[in-house]
Each structure stands twice: as structure tokens, then as C-alpha cells.
Design a protein around this nucleic acid. Structure first.
Ligand SMILES: [Mn+2]
Ligand SMILES: [Mn+2]
Ligand SMILES: [Mn+2]
Ligand SMILES: [Mn+2]
Lengths: 220, 220
DNA sequence: CAATAAACTTAGACAAGGCTAAAAATACAC
DNA sequence: GTGTATTTTTAGCCTTGTCTAAGTTTATTG
């Protein structure tokens, strides 16, 4: 049972919106994530329901099934492996990969993805710090927390970003905040939630709460 | 002016059928190459005509325009670069690449193809010996001729195959006839056009005319 | 040069995906 | 709990690409 590009994109959105496939998801939420209209979503939900990749009763929201979760994870696996390829092998910057991976993730060839994984040395995370599911859909997420949720004087290593938009990533490049950096919160401004950070024990950086929400670290 | 997957496939077929874009092409020929029906082709020709990638008047056959030729060559460039990638980097066999490249050739990203070309070291030919157009659509075809068209005692180096179907390529693998091999025609059987060859000055091989037609060499 | 034959195009239908506008169901508020 | 707001679905239409069946046009050939 093969899924079309559109079906794969819907399924991936539903998976992401339901906190990795556990909770129920709304029609409007899907529409917003996919930049489409609720009416189009309703149509598609019917189709996905018939293919048993989601549980759907009208007006009752939607939940991804186990087979749907597997299918979504395979698309996500491909997306992230391609992102690694683009950055590691083709020297793309991490803000340039998402659009292209959005296309590449739909290429159908089990051999291709197996060999790509092998070629890349079985990476565990993509350039944004997100985990790459293995061929069975298994993956481990390192414990991670947003800077915005930590108290002053917390410290850790930056492991991921929660926003892969080019503007955000380009901002991080500009201020030199990259995955792997040592980050310590030296002060929090209560007024606006902005933070003063110390990076790699050698320099100071001020970031807004907007940024802090999207920078994930593992505590030391 | 962006082309859809289907439009790109039609354009590529028209280019190939018209001996690299010079002669006129028939509706039925296109339908056969794309495993579709003549009616579908007629519909598509109207659209491609409106986009000025072909010259089309009903009942008069079709000729690719200069802008259409360029577009077709860019698709072919991508197809062949991906084939090189699959064989050189991902260890695909040359009979396994065509299907996948047929999908990959439609990925839209100028940066991707530029970087892929660079990553591969600017290859000039694909795994089947076909030339890879550069970013301006320029390419050089080494003079090549099918074994079937040469007289007895001709000799040369195998440089390409004219059929990329898995069955044919697997047959060549089985008998050990690969690109780069030295080939000499030691005898031709007039009855059925089959050939006796001497390969790499060290062994004998008999091939049918069907095979000979699809094995291309450059004469020494 | 007429009469088939072959090639090609049009007509009409369908499936996938999408949209707008309108209706129906559910949620929220008083 | 009744009434309005919000969410979701349906109805109807559009585009792309495909098909079959039925015309047209061009080729062939006696
Ligand atoms: Mn996608
Ligand atoms: Mn990513
Ligand atoms: Mn193709
Ligand atoms: Mn090839």
C-alpha cells in the first residue's frame, strides 16, 4: 500500500502534531501546518482513514495508527538522512537543507535509503539535532530542554534547534551559536524573558526569549 | 516557467526520439516511449506548445524548440549525474540505477545539482557511457559505433550501451562484457548476424546480433 | 484518384488535490 | 440550558494528467 507525496506529507504533519504519534490532532492544526485549507484536510482524512493509517471519525479529530506511525517515521527517516547527506557531503549550510529534503523524502527506493544510511555511517541525528529513526522506526531522543525553561546558572551543551527556518538558523550562524557549543545561562531578564549566556566559557551572548524557546540543550 | 514531472518526462522523450533534438517526432512514438496513449500525448503536446518548449501544429508532428532542448538537457544532466552518484558512491550496480534516477531527475534545486556535480568530480559520462551535459547543456559524444555495424577484425574499446534495461545489463555482467573492455570481432555469422568476439586479448565470447546492436565501441 | 488504412485529435469521463461558500456539529458563554 | 462562536464537514467547482470511444486528417495503395 503505497502513499502519494501528498499523503506522505499529511501523515508526517499528523505525526508531528500529535507529539510523536500519541495524541489526537485537529483538522485546523493540520491545515495550518501544511498551508492548506481545512476543507482539503477533511477530504484527505477520509482517504487516509480508508488506508488505515489514521483513525478518523468526522468531527472527532484524528489519531495516527501504528501502521501510520511507521509510515510517517520512514518519511522522517528519509528526510533527515538526506539532510545529513546535504550538509556532510554536499556542503550545504544547515539552513539550506529543509526545502530540498522536503522533496527528496518522497523518493521511493528501499535500496537507496539503505545505502545512503550506510554511506553516511549510520548517523543518529540530523543537522538540526533531531533523531534519525532506524529502518524499524526506532530512535532515541537524548534528554533535551529549551533554554527558556531552565533557571539561571544552568549549563549544558547545545544539541538541537526546535525551529529549522532559514531566518532562525541564519541568525544562529550570525551570533555563532551552533550545535555542540557549551552554553551557560548567566542572567535572565524577568521583564521580557531574554537571557544573557556565556558561550564555550569564553564570550557573552544576549538572546531573546523567542530564541531561547528554540535552542535545546542537554544539561551537564 | 517551471515544468511538472509529467511535462519533464514528455520533453525528455521528445528530445530522445528526435535524435538529440533535431528531427520531427510522432505522437505514437511518444506514446510508446512513455507507455501511455496517443490521446494523452495529444493533450500534452498542446500544453507544451503553449509553453513554447515545442513547435506543434496538429497532425504535423512535433519539433523541440531551443528552450525545450535546454530544459530536456537539464533533466538528462540530472538523471545521469544521479546515476553516477548511485554507482560511484552508493555502490549500486549499473542495472539498478535507472528507475531511481527517473525519480531523482525531477528534484528542483539548482544548488543541489551544482554541488552534486562538484562532489562527483564533474563526471563526463554516466554508468552506461552516455555523456553528461554541463550546466549550459553542452556535451561531447565520443565517436561511437555499434558492434553490429563493424566489419570482421574491427577492434576497439567498449564505451557505452544503447539499452539500459536491467535484463540486458545483467546479461552483460554475466558474460563479463563491461565498459572499458577491449573488444575485437573475430567472426561474423552471416545467417543470424551473431558475432564471435575476443575480449581483452584473453578470451572468446559469442553474442547475438540483438546484443551487438546495443554494445557501442570506439575504434582503436 | 478513389478507397481503405493508419495516425492523430477531440469528446467525455475519471481520479487526485486543491479551493470557496455554505451547512452541520461541537464548544463556549451567559 | 439556550444562544452564539468556532470548528469541521459537505457541496460544487477547478486543474492536471490519464483513459476509451468516436471523429478527422493524412498516407497508402490498387
Ligand atoms: Mn514533503
Ligand atoms: Mn532537520
Ligand atoms: Mn522521470
Ligand atoms: Mn544512463
Amino acid at each position: 500500500m503505497d502513499l502519494s507525496f501528498a499523503e506522505e506529507n499529511y501523515l508526517k504533519a499528523i505525526y508531528h502534531l500529535s507529539q510523536d504519534g500519541t495524541t489526537t490532532v485537529s483538522t485546523n492544526g493540520i491545515a495550518e501546518m501544511l498551508n492548506t485549507k481545512a476543507a482539503s484536510v477533511s477530504d484527505m482524512l477520509k482517504k487516509l482513514g480508508q488506508k488505515s493509517v489514521i483513525d478518523y471519525q468526522r468531527y472527532q479529530g484524528v489519531r495516527i495508527t501504528e501502521s501510520g506511525r511507521k509510515a510517517a517515521l520512514m518519511v522522517i527517516r528519509k528526510h533527515r538522512l538526506w539532510e545529513v547527506f546535504l550538509v556532510e557531503k554536499l556542503k550545504f549550510n544547515w539552513d539550506e537543507v529543509h526545502e530540498v529534503a522536503e522533496q527528496l523524502e518522497h523518493i521511493k527506493s528501499p535500496l537507496l535509503i539503505k545505502r545512503l544510511d550506510e554511506f553516511l555511517g549510520y548517523p543518529k541525528v540530523d543537522p538540526h539535532g533531531d533523531p534519525i529513526p532506524d529502518e524499524h522506526g526506532e530512535f532515541v531522543t537524548k534528554p533535551r530542554v529549551a533554554l527558556s525553561e531552565l533557571p539561571v546558572h544552568s549549563a549544558g551543551t547545545m544539541v538541537a534547534v526546535d525551529d529549522s527556518s532559514p531566518v532562525f538558523l541564519q541568525y544562529l550562524d550570525k551570533v555563532g551559536l551552533n550545535i555542540g557549543a557549551k552554553v551557560e545561562i548567566t542572567e535572565r531578564i524577568e521583564f521580557d524573558g531574554s537571557l544573557e549566556l556565556r558561550i564555550d566559557d569564553e564570550r557573552q551572548l544576549f538572546i531573546s526569549e523567542q530564541v531561547a524557546v528554540n535552542v535545546m540543550i542537554t544539561e551537564l
